[in-house]
Nucleic acid binder design. Structure first.
Lengths: 246, 246
DNA sequence: CGGAGGGTTGAGATTCATCAACGCGTGTGG
DNA sequence: CCACACGCGTTGATGAATCTCAACCCTCCG
Protein backbone atom coordinates (compact mmCIF):
# COMPACT_ATOMS: atom_id res chain seq x y z
CA UNK A 1 0.00 0.00 0.00
CA UNK A 2 1.42 3.35 -0.93
CA UNK A 3 -1.18 6.03 -0.34
CA UNK A 4 -3.74 7.12 2.18
CA UNK A 5 -6.47 7.45 -0.42
CA UNK A 6 -8.46 4.63 1.11
CA UNK A 7 -8.96 6.68 4.24
CA UNK A 8 -10.87 9.48 2.67
CA UNK A 9 -14.14 7.68 2.99
CA UNK A 10 -14.26 7.95 6.75
CA UNK A 11 -12.69 9.89 9.55
CA UNK A 12 -8.95 10.07 9.24
CA UNK A 13 -7.28 7.56 11.54
CA UNK A 14 -5.99 9.21 14.67
CA UNK A 15 -2.79 7.27 14.19
CA UNK A 16 -1.82 9.49 11.25
CA UNK A 17 -3.00 12.79 12.64
CA UNK A 18 -0.55 15.65 12.00
CA UNK A 19 2.02 13.08 10.99
CA UNK A 20 4.75 14.14 8.58
CA UNK A 21 4.43 12.88 5.02
CA UNK A 22 7.71 11.06 5.50
CA UNK A 23 6.55 9.13 8.54
CA UNK A 24 3.30 8.23 6.87
CA UNK A 25 5.21 6.83 3.94
CA UNK A 26 7.51 4.82 6.16
CA UNK A 27 4.53 3.20 7.79
CA UNK A 28 2.70 2.48 4.57
CA UNK A 29 5.74 1.02 2.86
CA UNK A 30 6.03 -1.69 5.49
CA UNK A 31 2.34 -2.40 5.84
CA UNK A 32 0.13 -4.97 4.21
CA UNK A 33 -3.49 -4.64 3.21
CA UNK A 34 -5.59 -7.75 3.69
CA UNK A 35 -9.14 -9.01 3.52
CA UNK A 36 -10.48 -11.31 6.17
CA UNK A 37 -13.67 -13.30 6.22
CA UNK A 38 -16.10 -12.95 9.10
CA UNK A 39 -15.20 -14.62 12.40
CA UNK A 40 -11.55 -14.97 11.49
CA UNK A 41 -9.29 -15.05 14.57
CA UNK A 42 -6.39 -12.66 13.94
CA UNK A 43 -4.62 -12.78 17.29
CA UNK A 44 -4.92 -15.21 20.17
CA UNK A 45 -4.24 -14.65 23.84
CA UNK A 46 -0.63 -15.61 24.39
CA UNK A 47 0.60 -14.75 20.89
CA UNK A 48 3.47 -12.32 20.62
CA UNK A 49 2.07 -9.15 19.02
CA UNK A 50 3.23 -8.69 15.43
CA UNK A 51 0.91 -6.15 13.84
CA UNK A 52 -1.27 -3.18 14.56
CA UNK A 53 -4.58 -3.60 12.74
CA UNK A 54 -6.23 -0.57 11.20
CA UNK A 55 -9.82 -1.32 10.18
CA UNK A 56 -10.71 0.02 6.73
CA UNK A 57 -14.13 -1.54 6.51
CA UNK A 58 -16.04 -4.20 8.37
CA UNK A 59 -15.47 -4.58 12.08
CA UNK A 60 -13.29 -6.29 14.62
CA UNK A 61 -13.62 -7.03 18.29
CA UNK A 62 -11.04 -7.63 20.99
CA UNK A 63 -11.88 -9.85 23.92
CA UNK A 64 -10.52 -11.99 26.70
CA UNK A 65 -11.47 -15.56 27.31
CA UNK A 66 -11.43 -17.49 30.57
CA UNK A 67 -10.44 -21.09 31.07
CA UNK A 68 -14.11 -22.02 31.22
CA UNK A 69 -14.50 -20.52 27.78
CA UNK A 70 -16.48 -17.44 28.75
CA UNK A 71 -15.72 -14.32 26.80
CA UNK A 72 -15.45 -10.72 27.93
CA UNK A 73 -15.44 -8.18 25.13
CA UNK A 74 -12.98 -5.36 25.59
CA UNK A 75 -13.53 -3.26 22.48
CA UNK A 76 -15.53 -3.28 19.27
CA UNK A 77 -13.79 -1.51 16.38
CA UNK A 78 -15.38 0.31 13.48
CA UNK A 79 -13.65 1.57 10.33
CA UNK A 80 -10.84 3.99 11.21
CA UNK A 81 -10.10 2.32 14.55
CA UNK A 82 -6.91 0.51 15.40
CA UNK A 83 -6.09 -2.27 17.82
CA UNK A 84 -3.00 -3.92 19.29
CA UNK A 85 -1.13 -0.59 19.55
CA UNK A 86 -1.40 -0.76 23.31
CA UNK A 87 -0.43 -4.42 23.50
CA UNK A 88 2.85 -3.67 21.69
CA UNK A 89 4.04 -1.64 24.64
CA UNK A 90 2.83 -3.90 27.41
CA UNK A 91 5.68 -6.32 26.96
CA UNK A 92 5.00 -10.02 26.99
CA UNK A 93 2.37 -11.95 25.11
CA UNK A 94 -0.96 -10.54 24.05
CA UNK A 95 -3.58 -10.52 26.79
CA UNK A 96 -6.36 -10.33 24.23
CA UNK A 97 -7.89 -12.12 21.28
CA UNK A 98 -8.67 -10.23 18.09
CA UNK A 99 -11.40 -11.45 15.79
CA UNK A 100 -13.31 -10.09 12.82
CA UNK A 101 -17.05 -9.95 13.31
CA UNK A 102 -17.84 -9.04 9.71
CA UNK A 103 -15.94 -9.44 6.50
CA UNK A 104 -13.17 -6.95 7.06
CA UNK A 105 -10.44 -5.16 5.18
CA UNK A 106 -7.59 -4.13 7.44
CA UNK A 107 -4.15 -2.59 7.15
CA UNK A 108 -1.53 -4.59 9.03
CA UNK A 109 1.29 -2.42 10.35
CA UNK A 110 4.32 -4.41 11.54
CA UNK A 111 5.42 -4.18 15.14
CA UNK A 112 8.94 -3.19 14.15
CA UNK A 113 8.06 0.07 12.39
CA UNK A 114 5.83 1.08 15.29
CA UNK A 115 8.57 0.57 17.84
CA UNK A 116 11.13 2.38 15.71
CA UNK A 117 8.97 5.32 14.83
CA UNK A 118 7.88 5.89 18.40
CA UNK A 119 11.43 6.67 19.42
CA UNK A 120 12.14 8.81 16.35
CA UNK A 121 8.94 10.75 15.81
CA UNK A 122 7.51 12.49 18.86
CA UNK A 123 4.29 13.29 17.04
CA UNK A 124 3.74 9.62 16.37
CA UNK A 125 4.36 8.80 20.02
CA UNK A 126 1.94 11.56 20.96
CA UNK A 127 -0.74 10.11 18.69
CA UNK A 128 -0.26 6.69 20.21
CA UNK A 129 -0.55 8.17 23.67
CA UNK A 130 -3.83 9.81 22.81
CA UNK A 131 -5.20 6.62 21.32
CA UNK A 132 -4.18 4.45 24.24
CA UNK A 133 -5.48 6.88 26.83
CA UNK A 134 -8.80 6.99 25.00
CA UNK A 135 -9.00 3.22 25.22
CA UNK A 136 -8.10 3.45 28.86
CA UNK A 137 -10.79 5.99 29.55
CA UNK A 138 -13.23 3.72 27.84
CA UNK A 139 -12.09 0.82 29.96
CA UNK A 140 -12.66 2.88 33.10
CA UNK A 141 -16.21 3.54 32.02
CA UNK A 142 -16.70 -0.16 31.45
CA UNK A 143 -15.38 -0.88 34.92
CA UNK A 144 -17.62 1.46 36.80
CA UNK A 145 -20.53 0.50 34.57
CA UNK A 146 -20.23 -3.10 35.66
CA UNK A 147 -19.57 -2.14 39.23
CA UNK A 148 -22.31 0.29 39.96
CA UNK A 149 -24.75 0.57 37.12
CA UNK A 150 -27.85 -1.49 36.43
CA UNK A 151 -28.16 -3.15 33.02
CA UNK A 152 -30.60 -0.44 32.04
CA UNK A 153 -28.13 2.31 32.83
CA UNK A 154 -25.29 0.56 31.08
CA UNK A 155 -27.33 0.36 27.92
CA UNK A 156 -28.53 3.92 28.29
CA UNK A 157 -25.00 5.18 28.61
CA UNK A 158 -23.89 3.18 25.60
CA UNK A 159 -26.78 4.57 23.57
CA UNK A 160 -25.96 8.08 24.70
CA UNK A 161 -22.41 7.74 23.41
CA UNK A 162 -23.62 6.40 20.07
CA UNK A 163 -26.16 9.19 19.87
CA UNK A 164 -23.50 11.83 20.43
CA UNK A 165 -21.23 10.19 17.85
CA UNK A 166 -23.94 10.24 15.21
CA UNK A 167 -24.67 13.90 15.84
CA UNK A 168 -27.13 15.00 18.44
CA UNK A 169 -29.55 16.43 15.90
CA UNK A 170 -30.64 13.04 14.64
CA UNK A 171 -33.34 11.25 16.57
CA UNK A 172 -32.34 7.75 15.60
CA UNK A 173 -29.28 5.68 14.93
CA UNK A 174 -28.39 2.10 14.15
CA UNK A 175 -26.56 -0.33 16.34
CA UNK A 176 -23.23 -0.96 14.64
CA UNK A 177 -23.07 -4.52 15.99
CA UNK A 178 -25.30 -7.48 16.66
CA UNK A 179 -27.24 -7.30 19.85
CA UNK A 180 -25.58 -10.27 21.47
CA UNK A 181 -22.25 -8.61 20.76
CA UNK A 182 -23.32 -5.39 22.41
CA UNK A 183 -24.77 -7.35 25.31
CA UNK A 184 -21.49 -9.11 25.96
CA UNK A 185 -19.60 -5.84 25.66
CA UNK A 186 -21.88 -4.41 28.32
CA UNK A 187 -21.35 -7.42 30.54
CA UNK A 188 -24.79 -8.99 30.39
CA UNK A 189 -26.56 -11.86 28.67
CA UNK A 190 -28.56 -11.33 25.47
CA UNK A 191 -31.71 -12.12 27.45
CA UNK A 192 -31.08 -9.39 29.97
CA UNK A 193 -30.23 -7.01 27.15
CA UNK A 194 -33.50 -7.77 25.42
CA UNK A 195 -35.54 -7.36 28.59
CA UNK A 196 -33.87 -4.08 29.41
CA UNK A 197 -34.68 -2.71 25.98
CA UNK A 198 -38.35 -3.23 26.77
CA UNK A 199 -37.96 -1.14 29.89
CA UNK A 200 -36.55 1.69 27.83
CA UNK A 201 -39.80 2.10 25.94
CA UNK A 202 -41.24 3.71 29.05
CA UNK A 203 -38.53 6.35 28.71
CA UNK A 204 -39.36 7.25 25.13
CA UNK A 205 -36.78 5.06 23.48
CA UNK A 206 -38.00 2.43 21.06
CA UNK A 207 -36.01 -0.26 19.34
CA UNK A 208 -36.89 -1.44 15.88
CA UNK A 209 -34.65 -4.28 14.90
CA UNK A 210 -31.26 -2.57 15.01
CA UNK A 211 -32.59 0.98 14.86
CA UNK A 212 -32.87 3.04 18.03
CA UNK A 213 -35.39 5.85 17.98
CA UNK A 214 -35.78 8.55 20.59
CA UNK A 215 -38.91 10.59 21.27
CA UNK A 216 -36.86 13.76 21.66
CA UNK A 217 -33.22 14.75 21.69
CA UNK A 218 -33.12 14.64 25.47
CA UNK A 219 -34.49 11.16 26.09
CA UNK A 220 -31.00 9.93 26.88
CA UNK A 221 -30.02 12.76 29.21
CA UNK A 222 -30.90 10.64 32.20
CA UNK A 223 -27.84 8.59 31.47
CA UNK A 224 -25.41 11.47 31.17
CA UNK A 225 -22.70 12.03 33.75
CA UNK A 226 -20.26 14.82 34.45
CA UNK A 227 -17.38 13.76 32.24
CA UNK A 228 -19.63 12.71 29.38
CA UNK A 229 -21.52 16.02 29.43
CA UNK A 230 -18.44 17.77 28.04
CA UNK A 231 -18.95 15.87 24.78
CA UNK A 232 -22.50 17.18 24.40
CA UNK A 233 -23.03 20.33 22.34
CA UNK A 234 -26.05 21.23 24.47
CA UNK A 235 -23.98 21.10 27.63
CA UNK A 236 -24.10 24.33 29.62
CA UNK A 237 -26.98 25.64 27.56
CA UNK A 238 -30.54 26.01 28.76
CA UNK A 239 -31.42 23.05 26.56
CA UNK A 240 -29.53 20.63 28.72
CA UNK A 241 -32.18 19.09 30.93
CA UNK A 242 -29.58 17.44 33.06
CA UNK A 243 -27.90 20.70 33.86
CA UNK A 244 -31.13 22.42 34.81
CA UNK A 245 -31.99 19.53 37.07
CA UNK A 246 -28.75 19.92 38.95
CA UNK B 1 13.00 19.44 44.58
CA UNK B 2 16.32 19.10 42.84
CA UNK B 3 17.47 15.51 43.01
CA UNK B 4 16.22 11.99 42.68
CA UNK B 5 17.73 10.87 45.97
CA UNK B 6 14.34 10.28 47.50
CA UNK B 7 13.69 7.53 45.01
CA UNK B 8 16.49 5.27 46.04
CA UNK B 9 14.43 3.69 48.77
CA UNK B 10 12.15 1.88 46.37
CA UNK B 11 11.98 0.84 42.79
CA UNK B 12 12.90 3.64 40.46
CA UNK B 13 9.79 5.24 39.02
CA UNK B 14 9.13 4.01 35.51
CA UNK B 15 8.52 7.62 34.53
CA UNK B 16 12.24 8.38 34.79
CA UNK B 17 13.59 5.18 33.31
CA UNK B 18 16.48 5.74 30.89
CA UNK B 19 15.66 9.42 30.91
CA UNK B 20 18.46 11.89 30.17
CA UNK B 21 19.81 13.80 33.14
CA UNK B 22 18.69 16.98 31.45
CA UNK B 23 15.08 15.89 31.11
CA UNK B 24 15.00 14.66 34.69
CA UNK B 25 16.22 18.04 35.85
CA UNK B 26 13.64 19.88 33.79
CA UNK B 27 10.91 17.85 35.42
CA UNK B 28 12.20 18.22 38.95
CA UNK B 29 12.74 21.95 38.63
CA UNK B 30 9.06 22.51 37.95
CA UNK B 31 7.74 20.01 40.45
CA UNK B 32 6.59 20.42 44.01
CA UNK B 33 6.93 17.98 46.86
CA UNK B 34 4.00 17.89 49.25
CA UNK B 35 2.63 16.02 52.23
CA UNK B 36 -1.02 15.14 52.42
CA UNK B 37 -3.01 13.83 55.32
CA UNK B 38 -5.05 10.65 55.00
CA UNK B 39 -8.29 10.84 53.02
CA UNK B 40 -7.38 14.09 51.34
CA UNK B 41 -9.11 14.54 47.98
CA UNK B 42 -6.49 15.65 45.44
CA UNK B 43 -8.52 15.63 42.25
CA UNK B 44 -12.26 15.52 41.68
CA UNK B 45 -14.18 14.19 38.70
CA UNK B 46 -14.67 17.14 36.40
CA UNK B 47 -11.53 19.03 37.40
CA UNK B 48 -9.12 19.96 34.65
CA UNK B 49 -5.95 17.93 35.23
CA UNK B 50 -3.06 20.03 36.52
CA UNK B 51 -0.51 17.61 37.96
CA UNK B 52 0.86 14.12 37.68
CA UNK B 53 1.23 12.67 41.18
CA UNK B 54 4.21 10.47 41.94
CA UNK B 55 3.78 8.65 45.27
CA UNK B 56 6.91 8.70 47.44
CA UNK B 57 5.35 7.10 50.47
CA UNK B 58 1.87 6.37 51.72
CA UNK B 59 -0.77 5.44 49.18
CA UNK B 60 -3.37 6.90 46.88
CA UNK B 61 -6.38 5.53 45.11
CA UNK B 62 -8.19 6.63 41.98
CA UNK B 63 -11.90 5.97 41.63
CA UNK B 64 -15.07 6.95 39.88
CA UNK B 65 -18.26 7.89 41.61
CA UNK B 66 -21.80 7.57 40.30
CA UNK B 67 -24.67 9.97 40.81
CA UNK B 68 -26.05 7.67 43.49
CA UNK B 69 -22.77 8.06 45.32
CA UNK B 70 -21.43 4.57 44.75
CA UNK B 71 -17.71 4.32 44.20
CA UNK B 72 -15.75 2.12 41.80
CA UNK B 73 -12.04 1.93 42.50
CA UNK B 74 -9.87 2.08 39.41
CA UNK B 75 -6.36 1.84 40.83
CA UNK B 76 -4.59 1.71 44.16
CA UNK B 77 -1.11 3.24 44.09
CA UNK B 78 1.90 2.30 46.17
CA UNK B 79 5.20 4.21 46.46
CA UNK B 80 6.82 4.64 43.05
CA UNK B 81 3.51 4.69 41.19
CA UNK B 82 2.12 7.65 39.31
CA UNK B 83 -1.38 8.73 38.45
CA UNK B 84 -3.08 11.28 36.19
CA UNK B 85 -0.53 10.78 33.38
CA UNK B 86 -3.17 9.11 31.28
CA UNK B 87 -5.82 11.69 32.08
CA UNK B 88 -3.57 14.46 30.73
CA UNK B 89 -3.85 13.05 27.24
CA UNK B 90 -7.51 12.19 27.27
CA UNK B 91 -8.55 15.76 26.71
CA UNK B 92 -11.42 17.21 28.69
CA UNK B 93 -12.01 17.09 32.43
CA UNK B 94 -10.78 14.33 34.67
CA UNK B 95 -12.99 11.23 34.68
CA UNK B 96 -11.58 10.14 38.02
CA UNK B 97 -11.19 11.21 41.62
CA UNK B 98 -7.81 10.96 43.32
CA UNK B 99 -7.63 10.54 47.08
CA UNK B 100 -4.96 9.64 49.62
CA UNK B 101 -5.78 6.59 51.71
CA UNK B 102 -2.85 7.04 54.08
CA UNK B 103 -0.73 10.00 55.02
CA UNK B 104 1.16 10.48 51.80
CA UNK B 105 4.15 12.33 50.42
CA UNK B 106 3.85 12.95 46.70
CA UNK B 107 5.72 14.77 43.96
CA UNK B 108 3.44 16.99 41.92
CA UNK B 109 4.59 17.36 38.32
CA UNK B 110 2.82 20.16 36.43
CA UNK B 111 0.78 19.36 33.36
CA UNK B 112 2.71 21.85 31.25
CA UNK B 113 6.12 20.22 31.55
CA UNK B 114 4.61 16.82 30.76
CA UNK B 115 2.97 18.05 27.58
CA UNK B 116 6.13 19.87 26.48
CA UNK B 117 8.52 17.07 27.20
CA UNK B 118 6.40 14.47 25.45
CA UNK B 119 6.88 16.26 22.14
CA UNK B 120 10.58 16.93 22.70
CA UNK B 121 11.85 13.75 24.32
CA UNK B 122 10.91 10.50 22.63
CA UNK B 123 12.20 8.45 25.55
CA UNK B 124 9.86 10.28 27.88
CA UNK B 125 6.94 9.64 25.54
CA UNK B 126 7.99 6.01 25.37
CA UNK B 127 7.99 5.75 29.16
CA UNK B 128 4.54 7.29 29.35
CA UNK B 129 3.32 4.84 26.75
CA UNK B 130 4.58 1.90 28.75
CA UNK B 131 2.98 3.23 31.92
CA UNK B 132 -0.38 3.92 30.36
CA UNK B 133 -0.48 0.59 28.56
CA UNK B 134 0.27 -1.15 31.83
CA UNK B 135 -2.69 0.60 33.40
CA UNK B 136 -4.75 -0.37 30.44
CA UNK B 137 -3.77 -4.00 30.70
CA UNK B 138 -4.72 -3.87 34.34
CA UNK B 139 -8.07 -2.38 33.44
CA UNK B 140 -8.69 -5.19 30.98
CA UNK B 141 -8.08 -7.71 33.71
CA UNK B 142 -10.53 -5.88 35.90
CA UNK B 143 -13.10 -5.99 33.14
CA UNK B 144 -12.95 -9.68 32.52
CA UNK B 145 -12.70 -10.32 36.24
CA UNK B 146 -16.03 -8.65 36.82
CA UNK B 147 -17.54 -10.16 33.73
CA UNK B 148 -16.65 -13.78 34.01
CA UNK B 149 -14.93 -14.53 37.29
CA UNK B 150 -16.48 -15.47 40.61
CA UNK B 151 -15.51 -13.42 43.66
CA UNK B 152 -13.25 -16.25 44.72
CA UNK B 153 -11.33 -16.18 41.44
CA UNK B 154 -11.03 -12.42 41.46
CA UNK B 155 -9.43 -12.53 44.87
CA UNK B 156 -7.23 -15.44 43.89
CA UNK B 157 -5.96 -13.62 40.84
CA UNK B 158 -5.27 -10.50 42.89
CA UNK B 159 -3.39 -12.55 45.45
CA UNK B 160 -1.41 -14.25 42.71
CA UNK B 161 -0.24 -10.89 41.36
CA UNK B 162 0.77 -9.71 44.83
CA UNK B 163 2.56 -13.00 45.42
CA UNK B 164 4.56 -12.62 42.23
CA UNK B 165 5.39 -9.02 43.09
CA UNK B 166 6.74 -9.98 46.50
CA UNK B 167 8.91 -12.70 45.02
CA UNK B 168 7.62 -16.18 44.51
CA UNK B 169 9.95 -17.69 47.06
CA UNK B 170 8.13 -16.19 50.02
CA UNK B 171 5.11 -18.06 51.30
CA UNK B 172 3.33 -15.07 52.77
CA UNK B 173 2.73 -11.43 52.07
CA UNK B 174 0.75 -8.56 53.50
CA UNK B 175 -2.21 -6.83 51.97
CA UNK B 176 -1.02 -3.32 51.14
CA UNK B 177 -4.51 -1.89 51.71
CA UNK B 178 -7.46 -2.28 53.99
CA UNK B 179 -9.75 -5.14 53.15
CA UNK B 180 -12.73 -2.99 52.32
CA UNK B 181 -10.52 -1.08 49.91
CA UNK B 182 -9.42 -4.26 48.18
CA UNK B 183 -13.00 -5.52 48.12
CA UNK B 184 -14.20 -2.40 46.34
CA UNK B 185 -11.30 -2.60 43.92
CA UNK B 186 -12.36 -6.14 43.11
CA UNK B 187 -15.95 -5.06 42.65
CA UNK B 188 -17.55 -6.75 45.62
CA UNK B 189 -18.81 -5.88 49.08
CA UNK B 190 -16.63 -6.33 52.18
CA UNK B 191 -19.01 -9.07 53.30
CA UNK B 192 -18.54 -11.08 50.13
CA UNK B 193 -14.81 -10.53 50.36
CA UNK B 194 -14.76 -11.87 53.89
CA UNK B 195 -16.84 -14.91 53.03
CA UNK B 196 -14.69 -15.72 50.03
CA UNK B 197 -11.56 -15.64 52.16
CA UNK B 198 -13.03 -18.42 54.25
CA UNK B 199 -13.48 -20.51 51.14
CA UNK B 200 -9.81 -20.08 50.33
CA UNK B 201 -8.80 -21.94 53.46
CA UNK B 202 -9.87 -25.13 51.73
CA UNK B 203 -7.27 -24.34 49.07
CA UNK B 204 -4.39 -23.96 51.50
CA UNK B 205 -4.50 -20.20 51.80
CA UNK B 206 -5.05 -18.74 55.24
CA UNK B 207 -5.60 -15.14 56.16
CA UNK B 208 -4.34 -13.77 59.42
CA UNK B 209 -5.43 -10.18 59.81
CA UNK B 210 -3.71 -8.61 56.81
CA UNK B 211 -1.20 -11.40 56.24
CA UNK B 212 -1.81 -13.98 53.56
CA UNK B 213 -0.10 -17.32 54.04
CA UNK B 214 0.10 -20.10 51.50
CA UNK B 215 0.68 -23.78 52.23
CA UNK B 216 3.08 -24.08 49.30
CA UNK B 217 4.34 -21.92 46.49
CA UNK B 218 1.80 -23.34 44.07
CA UNK B 219 -1.39 -22.78 46.05
CA UNK B 220 -2.26 -19.87 43.82
CA UNK B 221 -1.55 -21.57 40.51
CA UNK B 222 -5.23 -22.35 40.08
CA UNK B 223 -5.78 -18.68 39.43
CA UNK B 224 -3.09 -18.25 36.80
CA UNK B 225 -3.91 -17.58 33.17
CA UNK B 226 -1.91 -17.52 29.98
CA UNK B 227 -0.79 -13.93 29.98
CA UNK B 228 -0.04 -13.89 33.69
CA UNK B 229 2.05 -17.03 33.49
CA UNK B 230 4.74 -15.11 31.63
CA UNK B 231 5.39 -13.15 34.82
CA UNK B 232 6.05 -16.32 36.80
CA UNK B 233 9.63 -17.54 37.09
CA UNK B 234 8.42 -21.15 37.33
CA UNK B 235 6.58 -20.83 34.06
CA UNK B 236 7.61 -23.41 31.49
CA UNK B 237 9.48 -25.43 34.12
CA UNK B 238 8.37 -28.76 35.50
CA UNK B 239 7.52 -26.95 38.72
CA UNK B 240 4.61 -25.16 37.15
CA UNK B 241 1.59 -27.21 38.13
CA UNK B 242 -0.55 -25.28 35.77
CA UNK B 243 1.60 -26.10 32.80
CA UNK B 244 1.68 -29.78 33.60
CA UNK B 245 -2.06 -29.78 33.94
CA UNK B 246 -2.46 -28.35 30.47
C1' DC C 1 -38.58 -26.93 2.35
C1' DG C 2 -35.61 -27.26 6.15
C1' DG C 3 -31.81 -25.89 8.90
C1' DA C 4 -29.12 -22.41 11.29
C1' DG C 5 -28.58 -18.38 13.83
C1' DG C 6 -30.30 -14.27 16.05
C1' DG C 7 -33.66 -12.47 19.02
C1' DT C 8 -37.44 -12.77 22.38
C1' DT C 9 -40.11 -14.62 26.18
C1' DG C 10 -41.02 -17.47 30.27
C1' DA C 11 -39.94 -20.13 34.59
C1' DG C 12 -36.68 -21.53 37.96
C1' DA C 13 -32.29 -21.45 40.42
C1' DT C 14 -28.34 -19.23 42.14
C1' DT C 15 -25.78 -15.79 43.87
C1' DC C 16 -24.53 -11.70 45.55
C1' DA C 17 -26.00 -7.35 47.90
C1' DT C 18 -28.48 -5.65 51.68
C1' DC C 19 -29.65 -5.16 56.39
C1' DA C 20 -28.67 -6.13 61.01
C1' DA C 21 -26.05 -7.55 64.91
C1' DC C 22 -21.84 -8.54 67.14
C1' DG C 23 -16.70 -8.88 68.39
C1' DC C 24 -12.65 -6.55 68.65
C1' DG C 25 -8.99 -3.12 68.87
C1' DT C 26 -8.05 1.74 69.27
C1' DG C 27 -8.34 6.23 70.77
C1' DT C 28 -10.47 9.71 73.63
C1' DG C 29 -12.20 12.15 77.33
C1' DG C 30 -14.07 12.34 81.82
C1' DC D 1 -8.37 4.01 84.92
C1' DC D 2 -12.56 3.15 83.01
C1' DA D 3 -16.43 4.14 79.89
C1' DC D 4 -17.55 4.97 75.57
C1' DA D 5 -17.61 5.74 70.73
C1' DC D 6 -15.82 4.59 66.44
C1' DG D 7 -14.12 1.95 62.59
C1' DC D 8 -13.05 -2.40 60.69
C1' DG D 9 -14.10 -7.02 60.02
C1' DT D 10 -17.09 -10.97 60.54
C1' DT D 11 -21.32 -13.67 60.59
C1' DG D 12 -26.25 -14.65 59.78
C1' DA D 13 -30.84 -14.11 57.54
C1' DT D 14 -33.33 -12.20 53.84
C1' DG D 15 -34.47 -10.62 49.29
C1' DA D 16 -33.73 -8.97 44.74
C1' DA D 17 -31.64 -9.43 40.49
C1' DT D 18 -29.43 -11.70 36.99
C1' DC D 19 -28.02 -15.97 34.89
C1' DT D 20 -29.45 -20.39 33.19
C1' DC D 21 -32.26 -23.42 30.72
C1' DA D 22 -35.89 -24.05 27.63
C1' DA D 23 -39.14 -23.09 24.06
C1' DC D 24 -40.51 -20.34 20.40
C1' DC D 25 -40.60 -16.96 16.40
C1' DC D 26 -38.41 -14.91 12.70
C1' DT D 27 -35.31 -14.21 8.79
C1' DC D 28 -31.97 -15.72 5.80
C1' DC D 29 -30.11 -19.02 2.72
C1' DG D 30 -28.90 -23.24 0.62
Amino acid sequence: MNSLSEFNEFRRPQLFEKLSEESQQRILECSVLRDFERNRLLVQQGDTPRFVYLVLNGSIRTFRISEEGEEATIRMLEPGDTCMEAVMFMGGPSPINVQTIKNTKALMIPERIIKILVLEDAQFAFNLLKIVTRHYKNAMHQIDAMNIKTPLKRIGYYFLLKHLEHGNDKLDFKLPFEKQMVANYLGMTPETFSRSLKQMRAMGITVDDDTIKMKDAYSLCHFCDADTASLCPAHNTENCHLCTRH
